[in-house]
Write a protein that binds this DNA or RNA. Structure first.
Lengths: 200, 200
DNA sequence: GTCTATAAAGCGATAGAC
DNA sequence: GTCTATCGCTTTATAGAC
């Protein structure tokens, strides 16, 4: 737990965001969650905005870990198609860590609409995801045009986030969200197949 | 402008949400935007949460208007496919009214994750949209299985919102978002076509 | 590095006059 | 219906001791 203080605080902040939202985040609650005083939080971070900024990076890194890095490079027994599906469906689990990450991610995404600084940080994390998915699609249909892969990846991330929001706000049950995501992948892969055929 | 006070306030609230987000909404700023005192806002609405709640309905109604009600029933020259596309692409325009509505909608959606009351109101508006899209898909492929239509509609709304968020936070340029949405529709319609073929 | 105490400001909400 | 004035709480952020 106590790798170092900064990490403790960020972990606590992620928990608080998942529980209360970015708007509901109180520095004092982060401190309580981390078991320290408010002043110490300010010793380690410049201000509230700084905490949010760093928490975004923390969450992004953690998601990288639990989705197992690049899909298709982790477990070798999977074929590329299964790897992509597994990687995207990992975002839909009822484990606290995942729910926390998804919730916080959605919150920060929403906040970024009004916060230029946050936006920048998000753009970076988003690019990583996009490249990852584009690569995964490339492994499935290596002969497909690169542009078609990028578009597909972009739509998949958008769908992922839309479904995620719906799941987290209780508008969609977990299994339903998973089903919709699975089919979205199927649909995109089929589309890519058509595009590959045309290109050949 | 001055239809009645309540409406003035709601219009002002929508503008403020679009500018600052739900998180950034200050009752005093709503009052200033409407050109009245803070106290008068509280005379017309119970509390801050009440304003938010009613603003959601206001936005939902207004969107209904500018998307022209049920797609395929508006302009008769359109075929059902074009009508669906037009209806969904109406959410991606740089008109202030639309940008405002989309922003506020995204905000309320995000807020609903932490607000059970808002969730309920949202569920209603969401159902309307869903039915609308399901019907539109039905007009395109009348012989398709109803379940396939519902799933398609659900994915389209999720994609719409995901893309909308990305557009509004400047991660996607407007034209790019429109292109992605257009292709998402194409992809779903194609999928529905396959499902129809299987069902026959 | 860490705490207690507190300043400073923000903001929701109401009282009461007109 | 509408305003001015203000209460009272919450929350960010810092000062200063250890």
């Amino acid at each position: 737990m106590g790798a170092d203080r900064r990490t403790d605080i960020l972990r606590a902040a992620a928990r608080v965001i998942a529980r209360r939202g970015v708007r509901g985040l109180r520095v004092s609650e982060v401190a309580a969650e981390a078991g320290i005083s408010t002043a110490l939080v300010y010793y380690h971070f410049k201000d509230r905005a700084g905490i949010l900024h760093r928490t975004l990076e923390f969450i992004s890194d953690r998601a990288e870990r639990y989705t197992g890095g690049h899909p298709g490079q982790g477990s070798r027994e999977d074929n590329p198609r299964q790897a992509l599906e597994r990687s995207l469906l990992l975002e839909f689990q009822d484990r606290p860590e995942v729910r926390e990450n998804s919730t916080a991610w959605g919150e920060l995404q929403a906040t970024a609409v009004f916060d230029p600084e946050l936006r920048e940080a998000l753009a970076g994390a988003r690019l990583i995801w996009l490249r990852r998915l584009t690569d995964a699609l490339g492994r499935i249909h290596p002969a497909s045009p690169a542009s078609a892969r990028t578009l597909g990846a972009e739509r998949l991330t958008a769908t992922l986030e839309g479904l995620s929001t719906r799941w987290l706000s209780g508008l969609l049950r977990l299994e339903h969200a998973r089903e919709l995501m699975r089919e979205a992948i199927a649909v995109e892969v089929a589309q890519l197949e058509r595009r590959t055929a045309v290109a050949l």
